[in-house]
Design a protein around this nucleic acid. Structure first.
Length: 118
DNA sequence: ATAATGACTGGGG
DNA sequence: ACCCCAGCCATTA
């Protein structure tokens, strides 16, 4: 299906502005599935080639990179975020400062795939 | 349909 | 504040 849960995850992540971050749980929550944080992470691990999803803007609830920080993935994510102006302190991001506020209500409905009652 | 997987999360020690 | 444990969920084999 072209509108799988994964697709919806990508749609939400694409809304995260540069310089800000969201947690896996937050994305899941926006999609109406507050307990599907792990699935969100899995969706990002399954990103197809040539995508335009800013996956690096998604971190865990502690404000740290979930990918092995010493591995290539973690280093890349860390670098991409800093390029956008996100500051790391002791290896973690202050979500109060860089945390994405999230889409407004109307947009949330759209992201969940609900119609505005056409 | 059952079982296993994975870039999570919150609570307890 | 940090580490560990058990629960949760969509997708795949």
């Amino acid at each position: 299906m072209t509108d799988s849960f994964f697709e919806r995850v990508y749609r939400v992540v694409r809304r995260i502005p540069a310089g800000q971050v969201a947690s896996y749980g937050q994305v899941a929550r926006i999609l109406g599935a507050p307990r599907a944080a792990r699935t969100v992470g899995w969706a990002l691990s399954s990103l197809p080639e040539g995508h335009d999803v800013p996956w690096h803007r998604v971190v865990n609830s502690r404000g740290t990179v979930s990918l092995d920080a010493r591995g290539p993935g973690g280093a890349i994510q860390h670098a991409l975020l800093e390029e956008e102006g996100v500051v790391f302190q002791e290896g973690r991001i202050d979500l109060k400062v860089y945390g994405w506020a999230g889409p407004d209500l109307a947009e949330q409905r759209a992201l969940r795939g609900e119609d505005a009652g056409v």
